[in-house]
Every structure is written in C-alpha cells, then in structure tokens.
Design a protein around this nucleic acid. Structure first.
Length: 822
RNA sequence: GCGGAUGUGGCGGAACUGGCAGACGCGCCGGACUUAGAAUCCGGUGCCAUCAGGCGUAUGGGUUCAAGUCCCUUCAUCCGCACCA
C-alpha cells in the first residue's frame, strides 16, 4: 500500500463533504434528535488553537452521535457584530461589513480544512439584516412585555471603546474587551429587566444537572440573593425618612449610627444649612469621583463625614448620628445602611476610626464578650442581649421574630435583595443591531412598526475614535418621521449589545431561513434545548446567563416550551504552551494552519483530543503532535499489512476456529469497543478512549509477521475504523472506502459482545498484610470461600507465613486475597 | 476575606462503587534493519538497593485487612466573587 499522505486524502474528502447535502439535516419526528453546539466564534479572520480545541471536541461528539443513529443538529455561524470591525473602519478605513464578511469567508475555509461536520445550510450570521431584523423584533417583544426600558443612570463608560458597558462586562473595574479602566457616567440608556427573572434564574440552576458546579456557583454568586428586612428611620427635624435594608435584623438594637452612600439623594437635603455644608459637599464630590476600583476594594480605607443630623432607631428610640460614607454602595439595597459596629466588621472599623458608640446585642454563650476587650466585631451566632423583649433568644430565632414584630408594628417588612442589576443593552457604536425606536416630540418613545423592520445600518456614516455613535452622523438614518403622527422625529442612534444577538442564535439554527418569525415554534420545540453545549469558561456569567434569561422570556411569550436553553454544558480548557496561554505578545503561538500543513488535520485533531481531557487546559507539545502522527501512520501501516486478509475475510464467522492468540486479540477488540463507547458516551473522555485504541493497535502488531484469520482481520479493521472515525474523519474515510467500500461516517457505531469479553481465567493477587506477594491464575468468578482456601496453600505463601499465625483472610473474587498474619 | 477547583514519574496524563499506583503518549536507554542517518520494528524505563527487599500519589494525622480514592490538619497553585450591609 502507498504511504499515508494526509494532504491528498484530506483534500479529497473535504471536497466530498463540501456538497451542501452531505451534512444537511432535517426535522424528523421519527428519529431521536441530538442538538450538539459549540459556541460560535467572532469572525476575527483567523482560527486559533483555542477555536480548534473547542470545535474538534464538539465535532467528535456530533459524529459519534450520528453513528449512534441520532438525528444530529450540528450547526455553525458567526457572532459578527462588535468593536473590532469598527476599529478596522476607524484605523484602516475599511467598511465594517466588508471587513467582517471577508473574515467570515477565510474562517469558513479554515474551519472546513479541519474536517468539521457542520450543516452550513443553517449558518447564522448575526450582522446579516435577515438575522438582526429578528433581533430587533425581539427587542420590541421585550419592550411590549415591559422588559425593555430607558432610564438615566450612572453607567459604566469605556473611553477607548467609546461606549457604555453592562455590569457583566466590567471585569475588575476594567473593560472586558480592551482592558481599559471603566468610569461612571450619567446617561439615559436602555435596559433589559433581567432582575424580573432573578429568582427563577437562581432557582432553575438546580435543574441544570449537566452543568459544571463551578459555572452554577458563579451564576449563583452573581445573582446574589439575600433575605432580610427593610425599614425606615425618622430624621430629627426633617420630614424625610431613611429606608435601610439589612440581613441582620437581629442586630437592630445595636444601631449606633447611620451610613449613607455619597450618591444618596437625601444627603443634599439633610446637609442644607449645616455649618460645614461645603466641607460635606466636597467630601461627597471627592468620593463620587473615585474610580470603582478604589471605591469598592474592601481594603481601601473607610471614610466618612457627619451630616450634623440625627436619626431615630424605631425599635428603641435611640438617637444616632447620620454619616455620609465612601463604603456604602448606592446601587445596592436602599443606598443606606444601619451601623452596628459590634456585629459587623466594616461598621466596627468605621466606628473605631471616628470614635462612635458601640453596643453589644449578641453575646457569645460560651465566653461572654467584654466590649473593652474586643478588637473586632463579633459576627458568630449567639444569644440576644440589650434587645428588650428579645433578650435571651438565640439570634437566629430572633431574626425572624424581630421581622414579624417590625411587620406587626408596620415599621418594616421582609425583603429579598439581589446583587444582579438590570442589563444595560445600549451601545454608542455603529456595528450592532440598531435599537428600533423613534423619538417624537409629540408622541414620545415610539416603536418602529414591525413591517418597517429591519432598521438597516446606513452607510453614510463617519467613524471616529471615541466619538459619539457614528449613527448620529448619518443623514439617511436620522431623516425620519413619527410612525404615529407623521411629524418630524428622530431615531435612537444607539445599537444593541452584541450579547443580545448571541442570546438567541441557538434558537435560530432550528429554523434559520424563516422570514415570518424569528423561528417556528414546532421546529424549536423539536431541536431545542441544546443537548450538548461546548465553549469557554469566560462565558460562565455573560452569555450563559443572558441566554437563560432570553429563553425564559420567550417561554412566557408562548414562543417555546422549555425553561432552560442548554441541557448539558462542557467548559473547555485553554491551550497552553511553555506554561502560559498562547498569545502573540509571548510569542508562543502555534497556528492551526501550520500544523495542518505539516501533519494534516487528522493529526491535529487526534493530538488535541488525546493530550488532555476536554475540560482541562491543553499543554501544547510539538513532540506530542509527532506522536499522534506516528500513531496514524501505524494504523495505516498495520491495515496495509492486513489488506489481503481484510478483503478475503467474511463478516460473520465461527469464532471457535480461532487460535488461542487470535481469541485473545478478538477479546481485545470487544473490550476496546466497550471502553471507547463508555468513555465517549458518558464522560467525553476522548483521551482515554484514544489511548485504548492505541493499545488495540499495539496488540495487532503481534500479527504483523504472522498469518491472521482473515475474518478476524476484517472485524478488527471494521471496528477500529468506526471507532476512530469521530476523531480522525479523513484517514478513516479513506481506509474504509479502500477495504469495505462506502462511507465510514454513514456506518453505525460499534457494538460489543459481553460474552466475547469474558475470560475463563483471571489473575488473582495474593497479599500478606496488604503487600503483594504472589499472583495466581484461577477460574473466573471463583468463590470467596474457594479463594480463602486456596491462597494459604500456595508454596510461596506457605514459605512466607511459616511460623506466623494467620489472623484473618479476606478474599475479593476476581481481584485479590489478603492474608493478615502476626 | 468568601466561594470553587487542583496537587500522582523527567513531562502530558491513567486508575469504575476503597482492592496490583503510574494505562496510553512524549522523552530517555538498549537492540534489530542500514555503509551511515532518517523512518520503521522489538525490548526496557517511579525512586533507592549488590539479588532479597524497602520507599513512594503536596503535608501531618486518622479510619480500614486494604487509602491516590473516605475523614480531619497544614501548605501550595489556579480560577471566580469581592465593602452587597
């Protein structure tokens, strides 16, 4: 047989697979569906190893499921709105759409060169007006359901990107995209009311049995639910009250001061006319100008200033000073906090610094507290003291009793709070889906009528770094009349966060060409939810939370019938080289193209799958790649040696005619089939599946210079090629065609025969005091009693136990015998 | 600080419900083929030790006939959240 030449083989098969009908799938109620999805890429113009790792693993799953007889949906598309296209327009004067579509073309070509089994008929491109028409339609659906609203707020602003960002897109106070420090800015912006779904988004995490714990925990923390009470304190000499939220109603009797956020609107009213009014105002301004980084770090110093006014604790009438501080967050709860220094560490630090009073209200039952000996707040459980009628209760019980009491006296109520804020979706950028709203001086906010969708992106725009949205520079775009009254009006010039586009793309794949609706309900209900989703951990909160939110809203709108979009989630690891993530700046990048050119896509795929479990980081090794290439050559070579036998063999034959050695080999074939099936089906353990295939090929080498039963050789080739097909599709297609005719990817998955795996004898380990001292071959399933009887009679064991007393013998059938001696 | 994870040869990594630690691959060592090299094939390869044997899964302890696996302690690394009252 000729030499293994990956480039010829791969070109040949990729041409076959490029036929749009080859991977086409259709809805078929008679077949069990399997929706396999890998997170679609941003069309940067070049695939990198990270993409490859993601898509190769996902592809193996799709191909395996197809061979298992599932109707597999395995689509691909592009998350094609976003800043880089606009940057290209700003710095190189290339139109964003040109830049994007040419990148899509090259990336598609690169993806095809990897041999991925996508149904490209279903390609989704989010910057295509046929797609973003429905993104706009969905915005309007949210609007009509009261889930999209515009409000003025202090929002996150990135100067380099020239746009606002959602809370989820601010990482450590910096922009998720460009890493530039984010600052606060007051702007009127569009929000999606994700907080309406906070409770369900949290609760339904329990339904996601197929998600990694880590991702669920991250979402749980992000949603940040807490239970407590809200109540108000009167202010001496003012009509206004100060509402506060607390999770520690059991410490209400210990309030010694009130702390307001610098942004709190009451501050201005309270300080009016105070002698040091201007000093306080200066403090407020300074604090508000601090970056979020300095402001929210728990290490930074707590500072504050007394307003000169006092509030009254409603539970005991105590007069407490009201302070303005830098450590209370305006956005959470009520923007005001009750100060209980004895039982809250932050309040302790603050009160100590400014010499404020401290009252103990919870005591340590084991070791009574003394205020003047404490150097920290007491935050453990304990017994109530100094708390009127609640004294003596344990503080957990007191918590709910005090809230009951507050409610009965109409002072306060139970309250649940979330850290999750509404999703800021406006972007002051061009390359996104325009928000389909028109402003009319007469009619106000008006939705663009459905028949006028999509609101197209105009081309008469100017791109300038950091300037206002380019859309505001377009005459065409802004020349509009009010759809209601016909008077001159103006368009919303903001576009939508690209994360909106990606919050529903997995639904569009089910019905990608629909021009009457975003998708057909029956089709989505057939294909969705996604059975297996694979992608990077960086979307643990962003994309995965937003998509869950969208699914729930669309369910409530009657557009689909499930609660969660992704049944199983696999978060794949990064690609590492020389101890660091591959990056241009470190110069440790290996491009998929160069590997494919040198060894072929099959080798690249095999190495990626073999070197590490999918969810773990992959340590790139050039030597390891060579090892994978070597293995494929071994497969090629051994099947070449067997070629005549394979062709002469029969599909069914009498196993009893095999020699003992051949029987062993046949057992290995069936054992491997079992192992590979279980590894792929249950665990996505491609690395161990491949290692057992390597063992099988190694075992075949015993026959390289020996006659092999032709039918056995045939069985081996058929099994090996089918098992390897999901991992290395080209070489297996070629060899299958050569030996069996037809298409390996249309074959059914291997089956195995338990009886063929069973062995007559097993090797038993005999231990003395837990150390292996002898091995013995016995009949399979020899009973415990028989084993216990047999072991001490072995010569070697007799020798080692002579003169000692046997205390106990433990036997585990098919495994071992342990003799305990003294 | 809180939460999650990880820790096994020279390296990437195996080990199902506790039952032979180190599968498979890389690297290394030896051999065959070759004038020689490359490629290929065969064999070896946790550490210490002259065979016997001893020691080994981050640390220290515990449970057990038996622990990488279960329990407690400490340490290290990575990730997420981080003044959320």
């Amino acid at each position: 047989m000729e030499k293994y030449s990956p480039s010829d083989i791969e070109k040949k098969w990729q041409a076959v697979w490029d036929n749009p009908n080859y991977y086409r799938v259709e809805l078929d109620e008679s077949k069990k569906k399997y929706y396999n999805l890998a997170m679609y890429p941003y069309p940067s113009g070049k695939i990198h190893m990270g993409h490859l790792k993601n898509y190769v693993g996902s592809d193996a799953v799709a191909r395996y499921r197809k061979m298992m007889g599932f109707n597999v949906l395995n689509p691909m598309g592009y998350d094609s709105f976003g800043m880089p296209a606009e940057q290209a327009a700003i710095s190189r004067n290339i139109r964003p759409d040109k830049w994007t579509y040419s990148n899509i073309e090259t990336m598609t070509r690169q993806l095809k060169s990897v041999g991925l089994a996508y149904d490209w008929n279903r390609e989704v491109i989010t910057c295509d007006p046929k797609y973003y028409r429905w993104t706009q339609w969905l915005f309007q659906l949210f609007y009509k359901r009261g889930l999209a609203y515009k409000k003025e707020a202090a929002v996150n602003w990135c100067d380099t990107c020239g746009t606002v960002l959602a809370n989820e897109q601010v990482i450590d106070g910096k922009c998720w995209r460009c890493n530039h420090e984010v600052r606060k800015k007051n702007l009127a912006q569009w929000f999606f009311k994700i907080t309406d779904y906070a409770d369900e988004l949290l609760k339904d995490l329990d339904k996601l049995k197929g998600w990694p714990e880590r991702v669920k925990t991250m979402q749980e923390n992000w949603i940040g639910r807490s239970e407590g009470a809200e109540f108000s304190l009167e202010v001496e000499g003012h009509a206004e009250k100060i509402p506060v939220y607390t999770t520690r109603p059991d410490t209400i009797f210990g309030i010694t001061f009130m702390a307001l956020a610098a942004e709190h609107p009451l501050v201005e009213k309270l300080i009016a006319g105070q002698p040091n009014e201007s000093e306080i105002r200066q403090f407020v301004t300074e604090t508000r100008n601090m970056s979020d980084m300095e402001r929210t770090s728990s290490e930074s110093e707590k500072r504050g200033i007394f307003t000169g006014v006092y509030a009254i604790n409603p539970v005991n009438g105590r007069k407490v000073p009201v302070w303005v501080t830098n450590y209370v967050l305006y956005e959470y709860g009520t923007g005001a906090v009750m100060g209980v220094p004895t039982h809250d560490e932050r309040d302790w630090m603050f009160a100590t610094k400014y010499g404020l009073d401290k009252i103990l209200v919870i005591d340590n039952p084991k070791n009574p507290l003394k205020l003047d000996e404490m150097d920290n707040a007491y935050v453990e459980a304990g017994v109530m003291i100094n708390s009127g009628e609640f004294d003596g209760l344990d503080n957990e019980t007191a918590k709910s009793k005090i809230v009951d009491w507050l409610e009965a006296k109409k002072i306060g109520t139970r309250k649940v709070n979330y850290k999750l804020r509404d999703w800021l979706i406006s972007r002051q950028r061009y390359w996104g889906a325009p928000i389909p709203v028109i402003y009319c001086d007469h009619c106000g906010e008006v939705l663009v009528p459905e028949e006028d969708l999509p609101v197209l992106l105009p081309d008469d725009v100017e791109f300038k770094q950091g300037a206002l949205s380019p859309l505001s520079t377009s005459k065409k775009f802004n020349d509009v009349t009010c759809p209601k009254c016909g008077r001159k009006a103006r368009r919303e010039t903001d576009t939508m966060d690209t994360f909106i586009c990606s919050s529903w793309y997995y639904l569009r794949y089910a019905d990608p060409h629909n021009d009457k609706a975003p998708f057909d309900r029956d089709k989505v209900n057939y294909w969705n939810p996604v059975d297996q989703y694979i992608g990077g951990i960086e979307h643990a909160i962003l994309h995965l939370l937003y998509s869950r939110f969208f699914t729930k809203v669309l369910r409530d709108a009657g557009m689909l019938d499930f609660d969660e979009p992704f049944t199983n989630l696999l978060t794949q690891g990064m690609v590492i080289k020389d101890g660091a993530k591959m990056s241009k700046s470190l110069g440790n990048v290996v491009s998929p193209e160069e590997i494919i050119d040198k060894y072929g896509a099959d080798t690249a795929r095999l190495f990626i799958l073999f070197a590490a479990p999918v969810e773990r980081d992959l340590d790139w090794s050039d030597k390891g790649v060579e090892g994978s290439f070597r293995f494929l050559n071994r497969v090629w070579r051994i099947l070449g040696i067997f070629e005549d036998a394979i062709k002469a063999g029969a599909d069914t034959y009498d196993v009893e005619t095999l020699t003992a050695e051949e029987k062993d080999f046949r057992r290995a074939i069936h054992k491997t089939a079992k192992k590979v099936t279980e590894d792929v089906r249950d665990k996505f353990a491609f690395n161990t599946a491949i290692s057992s295939l390597m063992e099988l090929v190694n075992a075949a080498h015993n026959f390289q210079e020996k006659e092999i039963n032709p039918s056995l050789a045939r069985e081996f080739a058929s099994n090996l090629l089918r098992m390897l097909a999901p991992f290395v599709p080209h070489i297996t297609a070629e060899l299958w065609e050569k030996f069996f005719g037809g298409d390996v990817h249309k074959q059914s998955w291997v089956t195995y025969d338990e009886s063929a795996i069973a062995e007559d004898t097993v090797e038993i380990v005999v231990q003395i005091n837990g150390k292996v001292r002898e091995r013995v071959s016995v009949a399979t399933n020899l009973s415990k009693a028989e084993l216990e009887k047999l072991a001490p009679t072995l010569p070697r064991i007799q020798e080692l136990t002579s003169g000692k007393t046997i205390i106990k013998t433990i036997a585990v059938p098919n495994k071992l015998v342990n003799i305990v001696v003294k």
